[in-house]
């Protein structure tokens, strides 16, 4: 590194120094608020630490417990995995569908774009409380409407089979945020491609599959990664509404992590849980990134 530094011209050295100087606030923030906490967390995952007492080194026992002696860990992992599998495709598809609708050139479209984006900026706690009211089995709006058309609505959050789909439904409601990103992607697709396809006789469906989807794949790829991470981190809804119940049907991984860290003050084990989730997210991201070579198309290609 020193040799390459010496090979630089004085002007290049000055530019490099200036670049590092400009980067230094970010570097400082990264080291202090990200790199060091991650390092400490890795260390703590090999300890038993109740916060107010000194950490005790216990080797890999937290990880051994996680995989061999902790049914709650497997339950939390199963519930979270199911939630990702249910909510992620829904959010991707419905986000795109909404973006396609919002991409129409109709009067008042900006108003609708704003309206659909609002759920994305409302506090998660407020949204949770609102959905509790909407899905109340006896007096909630949803079941009242279902009742009006002769359908007996389920007990939603208070039913072991419906609680998880209810949380998934809530997360889908916030799809306006991703729709805006899709919309930006849609508007970046050159109009002349559609015109050329139309001249060639392509119908709406054909234009959608052969132009829109391929050129939108970078956006879909981005959304897939972001929404996947977001789904794995689901917490507020369960914390506010279900507390993981009933019958642990919404006992999400982050809720388990929270209880271990901040209710049981079992920071060592909580660190191990956090690291394992990070590894899952990392592995899934690498896998998606790997497959992206086959299905993501960039304009430059």
């Amino acid at each position: 590194m020193l040799a390459s530094w010496r090979r630089l011209s004085p002007m290049a050295r000055r530019e490099a120094l200036e670049a590092y100087l400009a980067l230094s606030p970010w570097l400082f923030g990264f080291v202090v608020f990200t790199a060091i906490p991650i390092g400490v967390s890795i260390f703590l995952s090999f300890t038993q630490w109740t916060i107010v007492e000194q950490p005790t080194w216990i080797g890999a026992d937290n990880y051994v417990r996680m995989f061999t002696r902790d049914p709650l860990f497997w339950q939390a992992l199963k519930v979270t995995g199911l939630f990702v599998l249910i909510s992620l495709p829904l959010k991707l598809v419905l986000g795109l569908a909404l973006a396609l609708l919002l991409n129409n050139r109709l009067p008042g479209m900006n108003f609708f774009r704003t309206v659909f984006y609002i759920p994305a900026v409302i506090s998660g706690v407020a949204v949770s409380l609102m959905w509790m009211w909407l899905l109340q089995p006896d007096t909630g709006v949803v079941n009242t409407l279902l009742d009006a058309v002769g359908v007996k609505g389920p007990n939603w959050f208070w039913d072991k089979d419906w609680a998880l789909p209810s949380v998934a439904l809530m997360s889908v409601w916030k799809v306006g945020g991703s729709a805006i990103i899709y919309l930006a992607g849609l508007q970046n697709i050159p109009a002349q491609l559609y015109e050329a396809a139309e001249i060639d006789g392509a119908g709406k469906w054909g234009r959608f599959w052969r132009i829109t989807i391929p050129l939108l794949t970078p956006t879909i790829f981005f959304q897939l990664i972001i929404e996947m991470i977001d789904s794995f981190k689901i917490f507020t809804e369960a914390f506010v509404i279900t507390q993981g119940g009933p019958l642990k049907s919404t006992y999400f991984y982050m809720l388990y992590f929270y209880e271990e860290a901040f209710r049981n003050f079992n920071m060592g084990y909580a660190s191990a849980l956090a690291l394992f989730l990070t590894l899952i997210i990392l592995a899934t991201t690498i896998f998606i990134n790997y497959t992206s070579k086959r299905w993501v198309y960039y304009e430059s290609e």
Binding site: L72, N155, W158, K160, G245, P246, L247, E259, R263
Partner: peptide
């Protein structure tokens, strides 16, 4: 106490939900 009750909460849920 709290850790054990968390592991055994299913009985509470089952009775409360009439399951």
């Amino acid at each position: 106490n709290g850790t054990v009750l968390r592991a055994a909460v299913d009985a509470w849920d089952l009775v409360n939900l009439g399951e």
